[in-house]
Design a protein around this nucleic acid. Structure first.
Lengths: 190, 190
DNA sequence: GCGCAAGCTAGAATAATATTCTAGAACTTA
DNA sequence: TAAGTTCTAGAATATTATTCTAGCTTGCGC
């Protein structure tokens, strides 16, 4: 990726997190990134294009980390737990990016540019399904509608992470890593 | 509340959910609600003011429903379960309002006008704490940092509800009411 | 019922901001 | 190296939020 594009994204994330997408002006991004208004439009089409690009990059970064973690797990328990750990770790390591992704998720999902996101998500989901299916079939974890697993595994840490990212918690997210990891496993094990 | 104010809120919710807050123009709200631009600004100050009002009303509606449910529960298990049921029911009964609340939560939380929300939330949270504390003390449920309970109780249904509201699930949210209710209880019981 | 104050309403005027346009600079590659 | 392509800058334009002002309505003391 071109350096100027990278600069635009970095500057935009900075502005978006400081003042929100709505109140950051294209001129703000120009000032922070040093790239002209014309270039910004050349690369991203419009403000939403910047938001979508930032969002997709975040999702993909997390997804690949998750798949790597899953690949080295050798049983369901480790699989489930590695997903939770990876989730918490990604958020703890990229808090601003995570705030951005949570905050503007629906903006992206309701955008015209969302098909790319959908496609990636479907593929990722498909790979997760393949990994877990044998364990579902052999009764190592509860048999449930597939769409429910995600919520049982990630739901609790997601809720907490949101409040942690907003600075609304006493405890530090990583300190609860094992708590949520264990809770996810307890929710699924037979 | 004045009828014109109500009309503005109803029209705004309709517009916001059809096209998103960013792309609904004040003029759109005027067209749908039949109330002039001047009146809209008189009542709500600016577009964000409308968003905040709509958000607060939703939160308070749900909170009072939740407190009513809790008041008629006579033991912890019923208390925990009634919170989950109430949560799912409110979302299933007010899907558009729920979509709005989820989608623009962070917009409101990052707004100047958010103190009112914070105050209400703290009070509500305090009342929940009072209700649960005796059961925590006598060991009817796990002893955990207080801030973790919310995520264990609501997290899974929240995650599923978000996908249900986005039309991304096969199953119907209310069909999983007992599944999530039971899961929450299993996560907390000793 | 009358008059006045407060709150409300309409739509025009203004200001802020996103987006487009144009001309040219900098690469790419045959 | 020259044609083609991509990129850049900043001015011009279009869109949209917000403010302003003048008039309308409602409630209330007399």
């Amino acid at each position: 990726m071109k350096q100027s594009k990278r600069d635009i994204l970095a500057g935009a994330l900075q502005c978006f997190m400081a003042n929100g997408v709505e109140s950051t002006k294209i001129a703000d991004i120009r000032d922070v990134s040093g790239v002209s208004v014309g270039s910004i439009y050349h690369h991203f089409g419009n403000k939403e294009g910047i938001v979508v690009a930032l969002f997709l990059a975040g999702m993909q970064d997390h997804a690949s980390m998750q798949e790597a973690a899953l690949a080295s797990a050798t049983n369901v328990e480790e699989g489930v737990k590695s997903i939770v750990r990876c989730y918490i770790d990604w958020i703890a390591q990229n808090p601003d990016w995570a705030r951005f992704v949570f905050r503007y998720r629906s903006l992206v999902e309701n955008s015209e540019l969302a098909e790319q996101n959908e496609a990636h998500k479907r593929q990722h989901f498909q790979r997760l399904k393949l990994w877990f299916q044998p364990y579902i079939d052999n009764g190592s974890i509860k048999k449930l509608p597939f769409e429910v697993y995600h919520s049982l595994i990630i739901g609790p840490s997601q809720d907490f992470a949101l409040r942690w990212l907003a600075g609304k918690t006493r405890g530090h997210l990583p300190d609860y890593r094992e708590l949520y990891t264990e809770a996810a496993w307890q929710a699924l094990k037979t």
